[in-house]
Design a protein around this nucleic acid. Structure first.
Lengths: 351, 351
DNA sequence: TTGTACGCGTTATCAT
DNA sequence: ATGATAACGCGTACAA
């Protein structure tokens, strides 16, 4: 006969006790007779009682939801991070709400407002490539909503951060190219505003400088976005230079693949004429021909750690301080798109 | 001085009127003096009043949330669908909650319980490859939660459905292979339980039968999952047969890539010795060498339509009936991994 | 050991 | 035109 779902009031009425007693029984309150507890629990199970989270949310002024803001999910990179986040938060009391900013600062700002509106308890965010101002994240913090930044840094923002040592990854990659005999190494960088772009560029520059190789401006191009298509024109510019590069270190695998595509079109042999190294180690990268050398990032772990950190913040209340900054080490994965290096011939080569 | 956020009570007190009046003013109730309306609105703006959705949720017994259940998001296929869903629902009053079932029936069932608990208003779902029983979806429906099934069908379940004509896609692909001169066409199918697997298999079978080509059992293999690695062994089995196939129609692009990989290892020329056709048209598929012929699916539209349908259901209450079944047409995309076909030489070829 | 009463923020219904 | 009150479901301080 009852229309809606059963409530503690229904149970109370049935048992001729007070709703508060039912509430206490369900929460295993110490000062309760075993009998009543058992009776309540039995009936609750029988009636398939489900606590109304909506009521709890209002009472506790929290939504039990964690917002996750990412620029996109169609790349393996972010979708793997999200999978890591899910796997950690799925076991907790929290729900996660994934929001796509589409690499647009404006959309990101709108999302923040929405998350504020629904009273999220915490936010995990990887900012867009347009984001230079972080005040919208600070707004969250002022509302006592902890923020964890992952992968893409927000310089100057005080928050927990889970990053990747892009500098080291780039340095390692370029250093390897140099050791393998390349001297004219070009770089296909990402959108300039991004911390990852900057750090990878710096790693590239320092590796060259470290080997006393002069830096040539015309060997550095920046792509407008992260898809294959975004890489075509910049790659073409590099490969149309009079003094052809003998190696390209690309911002990510997609761009590296674009470069490979252009190189092949121009009948260049990879890696004999030109070595190509990417970044990200997307699952299909090892299936290209030649298989793509790249820099692997611990994406899944990155997602999991970010999630754990925010859960921790949410559990131990109090003022937000002592922010953590965790930095994962990426790993160079050598495959067939880069020349072999005499001094490292004995290294294991992942295939 | 106020600790929490401003409420209509704060506004009411400040203006010495009743909270209900404030509520009405904010909702533009017709029977209200312009003066009071304006005063309320002005103060609301000044105080940056934000309605407390948590309270509304309790009152309306709904969470304003739509659950989206997908097996995974690391493939471009599902992540693009989700992007479509987001783009539609983002403009509405609803939030979306993405849940990953990891191709596990058990996890799927757990997710349903969770969504029930948080009182989602509707659910979009693409079932796992293990899911044979749909009672958990029916449970949602019994709780007046509309369900929209997308991409992967749930035979026997009465619900709105947004599908792809996998049969036609497969038929077309295999028909093309036949026209291009292949006679020994093998199939790398997906997990057998899946509707998409069944329909693509049937399309394959019918296309052969239609051309009076006998069906050979040893030419049909099924992969356990959808990743590259899952395709390696089945592909190897096919290519170790004494009577080698001269074409492979694969369940998806990943598997097709695996087959290409194995074929190359065995020094087979593609497409001269063997044609390979995939399904999905992942963004990187055109960058392989040879570029992969495949079947394109309107993933983004599929996501958008699914979202629109559930929004429509949510708006127009009433008993759930007259379920819609929308079927998108996939498109064969010819590239370099399949032989050219004399009779279709004039067709445009997407690259 | 258990019941009573109130509050969380909002809206709808009934008064006025 | 607007105020008062109840209700959504639960937890908890206080009372008994």
């Amino acid at each position: 006969m009852k229309k809606g779902r059963v409530t503690i009031i229904d149970i109370a009425r049935e048992l001729s006790i007070a709703p508060s007693t039912v509430s206490r029984a369900l929460k295993d309150h110490p000062a309760l007779k075993k009998e009543t507890k058992d009776a309540v629990r039995a009936l609750a199970k029988k009636l398939d009682y489900q606590p109304n989270l909506l009521a709890l949310n209002l009472l506790q002024k929290k939504s039990n939801t964690i917002g996750v803001i990412v620029p996109e999910i169609t790349s393996h990179f972010f979708s793997a991070i999200i999978t890591g986040i899910q796997d950690v938060i799925g076991d907790s009391e929290y729900n996660i709400m994934i929001c796509l900013s589409n690499e647009s600062y404006e959309e990101e700002a709108v999302i923040i407002k929405k998350l504020l509106k629904i009273q999220v308890d915490g936010v995990l965010v990887s900012p867009t490539s347009e984001t230079k101002n972080f005040d919208h994240f600070r707004t969250l913090q002022k509302n006592d909503i902890p923020v964890v930044v992952f992968d893409r840094d927000c310089p100057g923002l005080e928050a927990d951060k889970v990053l990747v040592d892009d500098y080291a990854g780039a340095f390692q990659a370029v250093e390897y190219l140099i050791k393998s005999g390349c001297t004219k190494i070009a770089h296909l960088g990402g959108p300039l505003n991004l911390s990852t772009t900057k750090h990878r560029l710096q790693g590239y520059l320092d590796a060259l400088e470290n080997a006393d190789i002069p830096i040539r401006k015309e060997y550095i191009e920046h792509v407008p976005g992260f898809s294959h298509d975004d890489g075509l024109k910049p790659a073409e510019r590099l490969l149309k230079l009079e003094d052809l590069p003998d190696a390209i270190f690309a911002m990510n695998d997609n761009i590296a693949i674009s470069a490979m595509h252009i190189a092949r079109k121009m009948a260049l042999k990879i890696p004999d004429d030109i070595s190509i190294v990417g970044f990200d180690d997307e699952p299909h990268s090892s299936y290209f021909r030649p298989s793509l050398s790249t820099v692997w990032q611990p994406v899944y772990s990155l997602g999991m750690l970010s999630a754990r950190i925010i859960l921790h913040r949410l559990n131990d209340k109090g003022p937000q301080k002592n922010f953590r900054q965790e930095v994962f080490k990426p790993e160079l994965v050598l495959r067939a798109s880069s020349r072999e290096c005499a001094s490292r011939k004995n290294d294991k080569v992942k295939l």
